[in-house]
Amino acid sequence: MSRLVELDARGPRKLTEEDLHEEKGDVAVCRCGLSESFPFCDGSHRRTADEDADTRYVYDEDGERRAVERIVYADADES
């Protein structure tokens, strides 16, 4: 399975002691790209549990998933 994840960050996020979860004592970093508290995991990856391995998906701003045949990127120089 593949998933389109669009991010607008311009650099790394350095984790500090303040980022530790008070109860769990750990930091979970998002790897699915769907977290509302990115770069931290908020459990949003659970929505991907039933994704098919041979399907591409996009998630819209509302978190709705749809399967797509392909992803096409426009050339940055094109208007």
Rank of each mutant, 00 (worst) to 15 (best):
E6R: 08
E6H: 02
E6Y: 04
E6A: 07
L7S: 08
L7V: 09
D8I: 10
A9L: 10
A9P: 01
A9W: 12
G11A: 09
G11T: 11
P12K: 11
P12A: 14
P12T: 03
R13I: 11
R13T: 14
R13F: 09
R13H: 13
K14P: 03
L15I: 12
T16K: 06
T16M: 06
T16F: 02
E17S: 10
E18Q: 09
E18I: 03
E18G: 04
E18V: 05
D19Y: 01
D19W: 00
H21C: 08
H21K: 10
E22G: 05
E22N: 08
E22A: 15
E22S: 14
E23C: 10
E23F: 10
K24V: 10
G25T: 09
G25F: 09
D26W: 09
D26T: 15
D26K: 11
V27Q: 03
V27K: 03
V27S: 02
V27M: 02
V29M: 03
V29A: 05
V29I: 15
V29C: 00
V29Y: 00
C30Y: 01
C30W: 00
R31T: 12
R31H: 06
C32S: 05
G33M: 01
G33I: 00
G33C: 05
L34D: 07
L34M: 10
L34E: 08
L34G: 02
S35Y: 06
S35M: 05
E36F: 00
E36G: 08
S37N: 12
F38R: 03
P39D: 02
P39V: 03
F40R: 01
F40C: 04
F40W: 01
D42S: 03
D42G: 03
S44W: 08
S44G: 07
S44R: 06
H45S: 05
H45T: 04
R46F: 06
R47L: 04
R47K: 13
R47N: 08
T48K: 03
T48A: 14
T48E: 10
A49T: 15
D50W: 02
D50S: 13
E51G: 02
E51H: 13
E51M: 11
E51L: 08
E51W: 05
E51R: 02
A53K: 12
D54W: 11
T55R: 10
R56G: 05
Y57V: 07
Y57W: 13
V58M: 03
V58N: 02
V58I: 14
V58Q: 06
V58F: 01
V58D: 04
V58L: 06
Y59K: 01
D60C: 07
D60I: 01
D60E: 05
E61P: 09
D62W: 00
G63V: 00
R65A: 13
R65W: 02
A67R: 15
V68G: 14
E69S: 15
E69T: 15
E69Q: 13
E69R: 15
R70A: 15
R70E: 14
R70F: 12
I71D: 11
I71H: 05
I71P: 12
I71C: 08
V72L: 13
Y73K: 14
Y73E: 14
Y73F: 15
A74M: 11
A74G: 13
D75Q: 11
D75I: 09
D75A: 14
